[in-house]
Each structure stands twice: as structure tokens, then as C-alpha cells.
């Protein structure tokens, strides 16, 4: 009835929810037990990045094949991705408050980059909703999608690495280099990433099928 990868998503996340609390973590100053947020905050962002990648792949697919399904998938993936940015931002803000001492700082390139990336994708939805002609909307938004993905990648993954940042994995440090040393954490972190990516695909699957149904009904 339910596809195997959906069950796998639920099992993997369930395992990381329980073992993320019980497993042993390195004892670090400032972070203390909040290092466990790595299991929850980071995979959410991985899922968001994955969905945006999924979205841009289908945008390119639309441009090369003019298949309307690709446009719908691209739109729905970007929507779901942006949805995942919300808990990502909120949990990051919460974590920052209790480790860096502030909810948000505009001095930090990673945080600024994420804020800009979210705004770029908000513009994508405004662009979509402002064009009535379906073919035009699909083509223009697919082109903008490619631009948005490249800009997001620059703002989140490249620019923060060029300067200093409070956020780990930036300012010349390889991401997770610190945590990778701890094999106990890896046992939870990697399943968490796979689990949340699969769960985001599940939500996308439901949204996509809903949009396709609505599309078919509009045509009839």
C-alpha cells in the first residue's frame, strides 16, 4: 500500500529521534547537550537543499521537453523546500539564542545568505502567480528557477566559506569536520539526513499528486 521508501523514511527518523537523545555525544563547552541539534536542525536544511535541487532539475527538464508535468513538479518541489526552510530557520534561531546569545545576527554571512535565499524563492512564487498564461508562466519561472538555485547555492554554500562565520562549516572550515571525528554521532546523523530527505520527498509526492489531480480537473 505505502511505498517502501516512505516506510524507510519514518523508521530512519524515528530511530534518530530516539537514539539522538540517548546516544553519547562529545562533551563540549558552550554547546553542551545542544550538539544533539545537529541531528535535527541540519537534516532539515539538507532536505530543503535537496528539494530545491529537485526543483531545478525539473525546471531544466521542462525547458528541454516542454512537458507540463515537469513544471508542476518543479513548482511543488520549490514550495515544499521553502516549507522546510521555516523549521530550519526557527530551530537555527533557537539554537543561536542559547549558544551565541542572540536570536539572529546580521553580521553573520551564513544567516544573511539563508535570508536572501529564502527571499529569492519567495520572488519565484510571486513571479509564478503574476503570469496568467500557462505556457509563459512555465517557461519564465523555469528560467528564474535556475537563477534562484544558483544564487541560493552561492549565498548558502560559497560566500559564507569565504569569510568568518559563527556558524560551523564556514570561514575556511570543512563542514562537520569537527563532528566527523565522533563515530557515535555519525551513526545518527547520516540516517537522519537520509530519513528527512525521504520524508520531504513523501510530502512532495503528496503535493505533486494533488497538483496533478487539480490540473487534470481544470482541463476537463
Amino acid at each position: 500500500m505505502i511505498k517502501w521508501w516512505k516506510i524507510l523514511a519514518a523508521l530512519l527518523i524515528f530511530y534518530t529521534l530516539v537514539w539522538g537523545m540517548l546516544g553519547s555525544v562529545p562533551r563540549l563547552n558552550i554547546l553542551h547537550e545542544t550538539i544533539r541539534n545537529v541531528y535535527y536542525h541540519v537534516p532539515i536544511w539538507f532536505a530543503m537543499l535537496f528539494l530545491m535541487g529537485y526543483s531545478v532539475v525539473h525546471a531544466v527538464k521542462y525547458l528541454s521537453g516542454n512537458n507540463f508535468t515537469s513544471d508542476i513538479i518543479s513548482d511543488q518541489a520549490a514550495q515544499t523546500g521553502l516549507f522546510f526552510a521555516v523549521p530550519g530557520l526557527l530551530t537555527g534561531s533557537m539554537w543561536a539564542k542559547f549558544t551565541w546569545g542572540t536570536w539572529w545576527t546580521f553580521q553573520d554571512p551564513k544567516l544573511n545568505g539563508v535570508a536572501i535565499a529564502v527571499l529569492i524563492y519567495l520572488a519565484y512564487f510571486i513571479l509564478r502567480s503574476s503570469i496568467d498564461d500557462e505556457l509563459k508562466r512555465a517557461r519564465i519561472s523555469a528560467v528564474y528557477n535556475i537563477f534562484a538555485f544558483v544564487m541560493m547555492f552561492v549565498f548558502i554554500m560559497i560566500l559564507p566559506r569565504l569569510t568568518d562565520s559563527l556558524h560551523p562549516g564556514n570561514g575556511g572550515n570543512p563542514a562537520f569536520g569537527k563532528y566527523d571525528l565522533d563515530s557515535n554521532m555519525r551513526l545518527v546523523f547520516y540516517p537522519a539526513v537520509i530519513g528527512w530527505v525521504l520524508l520531504s520527498l513523501w510530502i512532495l509526492d503528496i503535493k505533486k499528486r494533488m497538483a496533478l489531480l487539480a490540473h487534470i480537473q481544470n482541463e476537463n
Binding site: 500500500m1 516512505k6 524515528f14 529521534l17 530516539v18 537523545m21 513523501w202 503528496i206
Partner: peptide, 21 residues
């Protein structure tokens, strides 16, 4: 805390399964 998180998560997954079906 773990049992509370588990209950919330199981409810969410149950809802997703319901929507899927």
C-alpha cells in the same frame, strides 16, 4: 521527552499515511 517526541512523530506519520491513502 523521548516518548512525547515519539507520539508527536507517530501522529504526523499516521496523518501522512492517511493523506496518501
Amino acid at each position: 521527552v523521548i516518548s512525547v517526541i515519539s507520539i508527536i512523530f507517530l501522529c504526523l506519520i499516521g496523518y501522512l499515511v492517511y493523506l496518501d491513502i
